[in-house]
Design a binder for these strands. Structure first.
Length: 375
DNA sequence: TGTTATT
């Protein structure tokens, strides 16, 4: 099991290094390997004067990310007026997107520039201006099949753009070969545009194609079979908040694995692990009541919060990051803190990132101790 | 038939 952990984490770090050297950027052409997006359209460019310059929609969030984590991540940019993670009304499951409304439009712009394309666990988040909420923009997503295998994303957009403003497009590819499966999605700005595209393109042959394509409204991903719904209810969000027994077992298991690997004495007595809430106020290293505080040492002077999100995010739920800066120069003083919700994820992050080479520095990562008192 | 796009 531990070997599996190491193998997994090597992959996480390999993926992370790519991300660290290619920080999230704002562009018009790509958000991940196969989705064309339109993140840079400013409120002015997109038309209506009613478009908010402070309200953002954040898509492709990890399934287990909470509203608090969303707020914490985007709060590292600037003051947030309001924040909402959209959840299924019945199951409580995250629908994988949310809204962040800043006080200052400049912070909203900065969030798009710095957080769009950020990798969190298995997802690449998308950050863009939210359009004014309206019934006319709902149910505007189309499923397209029968596409020529040679058709590119751009060609697909060119074909559909005559009917309106495209919000996202995607062509599905074979996971092994990378070859187009001839099916895709087009999300229009407005439902009427999608309706016109169906009328104009369904059962029609694209230029140069030998077979007609099928264009219809896409299934809503929240419309699942009762079986899928049941299995979903069995999993999260309860997965993140296991009962005391499961929690205890998880802690012991991971703690013992780490002990075996590193020969360290167990940090936790059976009393101390009996539920997270009971730990509040008790002097447990690294534990701050709301999560597990991790000390990160040997950061470069120009390090910022995003580097901490990028390093620790892949290991699980991160609720807060902080780079400690010199009051006068505003440069990083060489260390920072990361708070993670789950002990096991924090422990794996520490085991994986301690000794990690970031640029020309070797990081020291550990649970925060009480050796350094608050000034 | 998706990395669940409108609270």
């Amino acid at each position: 099991f531990f070997l599996w952990l190491i193998t997994c984490n090597a992959q996480v770090i390999a993926a992370m290094e790519t991300q660290l050297s290619n920080g999230p950027t704002c562009n018009n052409t790509s958000n991940g390997p196969s989705t064309i997006t339109n993140n840079c359209s400013s409120p002015v460019e997109s038309g209506s004067v009613e478009d908010s310059k402070t309200n953002l929609i954040v898509n492709y969030l990890p399934q287990n990310m909470t509203q608090e984590e969303l707020k914490s991540l985007f709060g590292s940019i600037g003051e947030i007026e309001s924040c909402k993670l959209v959840r299924d009304k019945i199951t409580g499951q995250s629908l994988g997107y949310g809204f962040v409304n800043y006080v200052d439009p400049k912070d909203a712009e900065k969030a798009i520039n710095t957080l769009n394309g950020l990798r969190l666990q298995t997802k690449t988040i998308k950050v863009s201006y939210a359009r004014p909420s309206s019934a006319s923009i709902r149910d505007a997503n189309l499923y397209v099949s029968g596409l020529p295998k040679t058709m590119t994303q751009k060609e697909l957009e060119q074909l559909f753009s005559q009917y309106g403003r495209i919000i996202t497009s995607r062509i599905l590819v074979d996971q092994v070969t990378g070859v187009s499966r001839g099916v895709g999605f087009i999300r229009f700005d407005r439902r009427v545009e999608a309706e016109e595209a169906i009328k104009g393109l369904n059962c029609q042959k694209p230029p140069g194609a030998t077979e007609p394509i099928t264009v219809k409204f896409a299934n809503n991903p929240s419309q699942k079979t009762s079986q899928a719904l049941l299995s979903q209810l069995y999993q999260s969000p309860n997965r993140r908040y296991p009962g005391p027994l499961a929690q205890q077992a998880q802690r012991f298991r991971l703690d013992n694995l780490l002990n075996m690997a590193y020969g360290v004495k167990s940090r936790f007595s059976p009393m101390a692990i009996d539920g997270v809430t009971s730990l509040a106020g008790i002097n447990i290293p690294g534990h701050a009541g709301t999560g597990w505080c991790i000390f990160v040492y040997n950061l470069a002077p120009d390090a910022d919060e995003s580097i901490l999100w990028q390093m620790f995010g892949p290991f699980g739920a991160v609720t807060n990051v902080k780079v400690i800066r010199d009051f006068n120069t505003n440069k990083c003083k060489g260390f920072g803190f990361v708070t993670m919700t789950n002990y096991d994820e924090a422990a794996v992050a520490i085991a994986s990132l301690n000794g990690y080479r970031l640029g020309d520095r070797v990081l020291q990562v550990s649970f925060k101790t009480n050796k350094t008192h608050k000034a």
